[in-house]
Design a binder for these strands. Structure first.
Lengths: 355, 355
DNA sequence: CTGAAAGCGCTTACAG
DNA sequence: CTGAAAGCGCTTACAG
């Protein structure tokens, strides 16, 4: 029961050269707010209020409109709503990857929290190379998100400037910096490397080695590790650098290369739990006892590691807490609170075996 | 260099009771296409073409507009663009969870493929309870996505009808049905259960048991498992049902309960790899040798399992392939191809230990 | 508590 | 190859 005749036929009925040609756009594609309004006998704005501020609508009107909405199956068009109100109710999450779970827990709880608050999450996977970050940011900003979660601190000045200029809340996560763009929830990868170095020193490992991915944060861990060891007089640290994303297979291949290079290593700091598991597997094949002959330390929060690889030590990061805290930061700011905070969630070194 | 004076002050300058009051909306919030057009000395539509059909613009004009875009840092507003063109360039992905990696690989490759094709992914986490599925669908459809990836087949008639009615391509994944809403990329969970049952029978396990989550797909696996065993004359199958999401801890707690119930089990089919790892851990503590005394079979495609738990058998599903195939289905359809296909990606039983 | 008018920032559908 | 006008489906900012 459309409330006006199909406009496509108007010009055809009356070909009048004097009147300007009637422009037509594709025809009606779905239900609009005016369809609901007509059926309910109210103005479109009242239907809008039923969705956006039901408390301002008379109970009886509310009920009537809702019944029509239900009957027709009307779903508001948020493209239009967002354009009109400048409120997209969209939050962008930019993450290198959600495979292999390092960040997937963060995104999981972040999305849940956002969803509860009435926002939806636009997921943008940046990969590890950063080559197309500007293009990705364009794509993200073109949706006019009301907030952005970033994984890692933004590296380039151009990126930082653009993000700062859009004037929406930004949370950088999974890293630490003195000068966040806006808010930050993370921890210091450098300190993580320092802590692992100290752990190795305390357990009398004098020939430590490194298997690291060469992404920004892994390199920060590497730096902390090397610098702390250097202060203890250990300068010659054999290492294998691998390209992200890391995997068990890569870790498995890396250990033999390391041992080829330096036969007498007694500890390896791996850039991720997956690499550590691969290294553990390779150590087994090489007949090395872990951790007595070779200590292996990973990085991550993979639950399975607790049960399946008690020989490994790991730097544990609470990805869930990062996601929840980041969500709260964003939501607080969106609700008007103005605190500009940095949250250091810290990390822990989980040592399972006592040998 | 705005091309018109700020409208907010117009009425203030000339308080004229006869003229209708000038309505004002919040003031200018950002750059618009008209700002770029003015600076470049072209019409807005030309700027639009530079973004959407650059091949139709004269090379010189193209260059000039692009320079202004660059200089100003203009990013088109896709809320407006989508509303106007009825092309949101958004694809929705509805997944129970991305934590713990079962679906995260699928979403990872799906997002990458969509991104390459110029689409962005709206991530919607449905959880496992299905209580708020209608509301979730409303939220998703309100963004007017051009396609939808669903995890699992839609259960309720209402959901199926609504999805079918929106007239956009839909891919159901990670399951199998005779009557998909539109397209489907998955495999039969029921057959998976049958296959595990047969594997147990072939390896002479006569006292099989079950640890299963009670979500729809896990229950289908359970059904296949039980029915196949029943045909072999095994009707009394002890089981523990647990609530999703499953975890190592839950699996670890479940095995003792199972053994309490039925002391003589010689095989367990676990609903997920995490449950299987937990069960393995519990078996160790109970002094049960795996697999010689107790076979344990999981479900999933967690890479680590290959290296860390060779005692386990597992049903392996290629989540990456599902994601890629689903993306291709959607993109083909969006590009105009009309095939309405069901893809069975199958599964494999991965048996690592020979004992 | 409800509504008429204007506007959000684009693109369509012409026309030249 | 370029542009003027109209329209996409909502919400704002009033007014009553």
């Amino acid at each position: 029961m459309p409330n006006k005749e199909p406009s496509a036929t108007v010009g055809a009925d009356l070909p009048d050269a004097a009147a300007p040609a009637r422009r037509v756009r594709g025809g009606p594609k779905g239900l609009r707010i005016t369809d609901v309004a007509a059926q309910a006998g109210v103005a479109p704005i009242t239907v809008s209020r039923v969705f956006n501020s039901p408390e301002t609508v008379a109970p009886e009107t509310l009920e009537r409109v809702r019944q029509v909405v239900q009957k027709l199956g009307y779903v508001p068009n948020r493209l239009a709503g967002g354009l009109s109100s400048s409120r997209s109710r969209l939050i962008a999450a930019i993450v290198p990857t959600i495979a292999h779970s390092l960040f997937s827990d963060t995104i999981q709880v972040f999305s849940e929290a956002m969803s509860r608050a009435g926002y939806q999450v636009l997921l943008a996977l940046s990969g590890y190379d950063g080559s197309s970050e500007e293009a990705l940011l364009d794509a993200v900003l073109s949706r006019r998100p009301e907030g952005v979660l970033l994984t890692g601190v933004a590296h380039t000045d151009s990126l930082r400037a653009r993000l700062a200029n859009v004037g929406i809340p930004i949370v950088e996560t999974w890293d630490m910096t003195e000068q966040p763009i806006d808010m930050l929830v993370g921890f210091s990868h450098y300190q993580t490397g320092v802590a692992v170095a100290e752990h190795f020193l305390q357990t009398n490992r004098r020939k430590p080695a490194l298997v690291s991915a060469n992404d920004e944060r892994a390199l920060a861990r590497r730096r902390g590790f090397r610098e702390r060891l250097a202060r203890a007089g250990i300068d010659d640290i054999p290492e294998v650098l691998v390209a992200p994303p890391s995997s068990v297979a890569i870790g498995k291949a890396a250990l033999p290369r390391l041992i080829e290079e330096a036969r007498h290593i007694d500890a390896v700091f791996c850039g991720s739990d997956l690499l550590a598991i691969g290294a553990l597997s390779a150590a087994r094949q090489l007949g090395l006892s872990v951790p007595s002959q070779l200590a292996i330390c990973g990085f991550g929060d993979l639950e399975f590691a607790t049960e399946t690889t008690p020989q490994l030590t790991s730097v544990h990061v609470d990805g869930t807490r990062i996601g929840l805290t980041a969500a709260r930061c964003l939501l607080d700011r969106l609700a008007g609170s103005a605190q500009n905070k940095v949250t250091d969630v810290g990390f822990g070194i989980i040592r399972r075996a006592t040998t």
